[in-house]
Amino acid sequence: MRQAFLGYTTRSLLVCVVLGAFTAAVLHLARFIGMLLLAVAPWLGSPSALIPWFAFIIVAALLVQRPGAAVLTALIGTVAGVGAMSLMAGVVVEAVFLVGRAVRRRRRGAIAPVGDRAELWLAVTAGILTGGMSYATLFTIQEFLALPAGLIVLGLVVRIVAGILYGWLAFAVVRGLLRAGFDPGGPRRARRLESTTSPSAGSPR
């Protein structure tokens, strides 16, 4: 499969495009639910914390282990969605994975393989921080500022719990795709891996 910019394959770029489209669709739903809840539960926010609107951005970072995968996916979600919330989430997710993988590369010489459990904590951390970013935007909503302090704190707790769940959900989606035989790198990557693990032509049988 032909290599594209920054080591992306055509398949990995398509993965980002598809996940970006999913992000836009789910973000639209989260905004709609958030608007419905604004009058009765503004601490759930808009986009609503009850909808995993940033989970597909985390999936992109887990599945396409290339710099900028989360931002690219989020940018597509922003273009197809409403507002810059998707892009803000992409920047947060991208930063978490860049730092986390840089630390692992420095300690162990390489990042964890796609679907490795070592990346679960990155997904969960990205979910928590994205939830925190979403929570910060609530302070621009007048109805939220008028709430009692207890409900304001509850809004943060909901986003932390949701971030943990959505990070785990993204990791579970990636593991499910891998079990189903999906290769984010495409057949060319698979052939390279096979060639590196197969015995040499002159080796004894």
Rank of each mutant, 00 (worst) to 15 (best):
residue 1 M to K: 12
residue 2 R to G: 15
residue 4 A to M: 12
residue 5 F to N: 00
residue 6 L to R: 15
residue 9 T to L: 04
residue 10 T to Y: 11
residue 15 V to S: 01
residue 18 V to E: 12
residue 19 L to S: 14
residue 20 G to D: 06
residue 21 A to V: 14
residue 22 F to Y: 15
residue 22 F to T: 15
residue 24 A to Q: 04
residue 25 A to I: 13
residue 26 V to G: 08
residue 27 L to D: 05
residue 27 L to V: 05
residue 28 H to T: 13
residue 28 H to A: 15
residue 29 L to F: 04
residue 32 F to A: 11
residue 32 F to S: 10
residue 34 G to P: 04
residue 41 A to F: 10
residue 42 P to F: 05
residue 46 S to G: 06
residue 46 S to R: 03
residue 51 I to S: 08
residue 51 I to K: 07
residue 51 I to H: 06
residue 53 W to S: 10
residue 54 F to R: 01
residue 56 F to S: 08
residue 57 I to W: 02
residue 61 A to P: 00
residue 61 A to Q: 01
residue 63 L to A: 03
residue 67 P to N: 05
residue 68 G to N: 01
residue 69 A to D: 07
residue 72 L to Q: 06
residue 72 L to R: 09
residue 73 T to C: 06
residue 81 G to H: 04
residue 85 M to D: 09
residue 86 S to P: 01
residue 89 A to W: 00
residue 90 G to A: 03
residue 91 V to M: 15
residue 96 V to S: 05
residue 104 R to Y: 14
residue 111 I to A: 15
residue 113 P to F: 07
residue 114 V to L: 08
residue 115 G to A: 02
residue 115 G to H: 00
residue 119 E to Q: 06
residue 120 L to A: 15
residue 121 W to P: 14
residue 122 L to P: 05
residue 125 T to H: 06
residue 126 A to Q: 02
residue 127 G to H: 01
residue 127 G to M: 00
residue 127 G to E: 00
residue 136 A to M: 09
residue 138 L to R: 14
residue 139 F to G: 09
residue 139 F to R: 09
residue 141 I to N: 09
residue 144 F to Q: 12
residue 144 F to N: 13
residue 144 F to D: 14
residue 144 F to K: 13
residue 145 L to K: 12
residue 146 A to G: 13
residue 146 A to E: 14
residue 148 P to E: 04
residue 148 P to R: 03
residue 155 G to F: 02
residue 156 L to Q: 11
residue 157 V to A: 12
residue 159 R to W: 02
residue 161 V to I: 10
residue 162 A to C: 13
residue 173 V to M: 11
residue 174 V to M: 02
residue 177 L to E: 00
residue 180 A to P: 09
residue 183 D to Q: 07
residue 184 P to S: 08
residue 184 P to I: 07
residue 186 G to N: 06
residue 187 P to K: 02
residue 191 R to W: 02
residue 192 R to C: 00
residue 193 L to F: 06
residue 194 E to C: 10
residue 202 G to D: 07
